[in-house]
Structure formats: structure tokens, C-alpha cells
């Protein structure tokens, strides 16, 4: 592999993420996937919104856009439609993608526009001080839920599947080699790809829920996840499945749009 430093803006390092934050592992895996696929930095656009996770766009040496909270997918749709030859990656946090940007998320999935939506799910709003997010889950503690959260959470995979995403996968920061493989598949997929990555926030989610330090949270990912369809899942249905849930071919939005332009322009040139 080429040095990781070829893909980052070294002047911004060490990064601002807390000690043990999983977002750095996602950054590393993303760079590894780009390197292994041999993609050119000039062909990649990374569009992000607001949040800890969205800071990732500032660290990579691709074309990058740091946009509005929850609206990264809307900006990304604009970029992709005007320059469909570019590869678009949209890293988002759980709150950014599914609370503030929930509508953009389901409609981008429904349109099946070719881009990779990476949901870095740490189950909390870290940047603003640990408020609960739609992914925190029932009974979990947060700064804004000191007596326990009464909101139920989304299942990102089920939501993306139902909304029509043509590639849906889940992995964790503990399973970094699997993350690289899944990101490679997602980047080369022709359609809307959703990759949910369970990542640790030791500063807020871990501390509020007494999950220990970052390595303890990784142990939790190791013990509470299992490959899709494993026997362990049948024995213990509370385990979280990881792997590729959906990978199907479906008419892609930009390709279809081009056909519409062609039909409309028939006999006019």
C-alpha cells in the first residue's frame, strides 16, 4: 500500500477526534479501500454535513465539500448530477443522516443515485455534548436523557432496504479488515450504497452508559455482532448482524436522467 499520508491533508494532523474515537479507524479503512481499488484522488468527491463524523472530509486530500447539517446527500446529489463521472462519498453521523437528514436519506435511497453513504453510527451527538440521537436506543443514557432514553431507535439497514438502496451493508470499527472489503464493494457499486459502521464514542456514549474505555467498546462490538445468517444469531437473536445485506442491480438515477435528456432532445440538434 502507498503511504496513508498520500491521501490526507497532513497539516491538519493530529486530528481533533477524542482519544479512542472510532471515526479515525473509519478514515483509515476508507483510505485503504481507495488505495486498494487504485482510485484517483481527483475522481473522488467527498461531501459531508455537520458533526464529529463530518470532519472526515477535511482530512482527506480529495475534492471535498463541508455543507449543512443533514443536507450532505442533497449537495452530493447536485454534484453527482452535474458531474456523473465523479465518484461521490458521503460520510455522515447517525444524527446527521437519520434525524436532521432523514428525509434526504430515504429519498436519495429511493432514487438510487450512485454514491456511497457512510453512516458512522456512534449512537450519540458527540460534537454538541452527548445528546441522544435516533440511534441511541431505548433505555440508554445521554446528557439529555439522564434518567434513560424513552425513544426507540432505527435499524439503519432495514430503513435503507425499505427506502430502496441497492447496496446495504453493516460493519464495525473492530472489524477493520471487513470494513475495508465492504467499502471497496460499496465504492464500486452502481447505485446508492449505504454502509452503516458501528463506531465508538468513548467520551459520551461510552461514558454515559458505563461501557468503559475505547478498547472495551471494541470488545462490545466483537461480542455483540455476528456475520449474517450465523448459527450464533439463531441462538441469540439480540446479536447485531454484519455483512452485505443487499447488493442488487437497479436502474441508476444519473444514467436514467441522461436517457431522458436524449429522448427530449431527439430531432432537435
Amino acid at each position: 500500500m502507498a503511504s496513508v499520508k498520500e491521501y490526507i491533508r497532513e497539516r491538519f494532523f493530529p486530528h481533533i477526534w477524542c482519544p479512542g474515537c472510532g471515526h479515525g479507524t473509519v478514515l483509515k479503512s476508507l483510505i485503504t479501500a481507495v488505495d486498494q481499488l487504485g482510485l484517483s484522488k481527483n475522481d473522488i468527491v467527498m461531501v459531508s454535513g455537520i458533526g464529529c463524523s463530518s470532519r472526515i472530509a477535511g482530512y482527506v486530500d480529495f475534492h471535498t465539500l463541508h455543507t449543512l447539517h443533514g443536507r450532505a446527500l442533497a449537495f452530493a446529489t447536485g454534484v453527482k448530477l452535474s458531474k456523473p463521472q465523479l465518484r461521490v462519498m458521503v460520510p455522515m453521523g447517525d444524527g446527521d443522516a437519520l434525524a436532521i437528514g432523514g428525509n434526504h436519506f430515504i429519498h436519495a435511497a429511493r432514487r438510487n443515485i450512485a454514491m456511497t453513504a457512510i453512516v458512522m453510527n456512534n449512537r450519540i451527538y458527540g460534537m454538541t455534548g452527548g445528546q441522544f440521537s435516533p440511534l441511541s436506543g431505548y433505555g440508554k443514557a445521554a446528557t439529555t436523557a439522564p434518567y434513560g432514553n424513552i425513544d426507540h431507535d432505527f435499524d439503519v439497514v432495514q430503513l435503507a432496504k425499505a427506502a430502496g438502496a441497492s447496496f446495504v451493508a453493516r460493519t464495525t470499527t473492530y472489524h477493520a479488515p471487513q470494513m475495508v472489503e465492504i467499502l471497496k464493494q460499496a465504492f464500486t457499486h452502481k447505485g446508492f450504497a449505504v454502509v452503516e459502521i458501528l463506531t465508538q464514542c468513548p467520551t459520551y456514549f461510552g461514558r454515559k452508559n458505563k461501557m468503559g474505555e475505547a478498547p472495551d467498546m471494541l470488545e462490545w462490538f466483537k461480542e455483540n455482532t455476528t456475520p449474517i445468517g450465523s448459527q450464533a444469531k439463531q441462538k441469540n437473536p439480540s446479536l447485531i448482524e454484519r455483512g452485505v445485506f443487499v447488493a442488487e442491480e437497479k436502474a441508476e438515477y444519473c444514467t436514467e436522467y441522461e436517457k431522458v435528456v436524449e429522448r427530449a432532445m431527439k430531432g432537435r440538434e
Partner: peptide
């Protein structure tokens, strides 16, 4: 290389 892959600070090669 598991340390290199998991290091969140990109500090290990």
C-alpha cells in the same frame, strides 16, 4: 497489521 488497521489516530505503520 491489525494495530495499523485499527489505530484511530493513523499513527502506526
Amino acid at each position: 497489521r491489525l494495530c495499523e488497521m485499527r489505530c484511530p489516530d493513523l499513527s502506526i505503520t
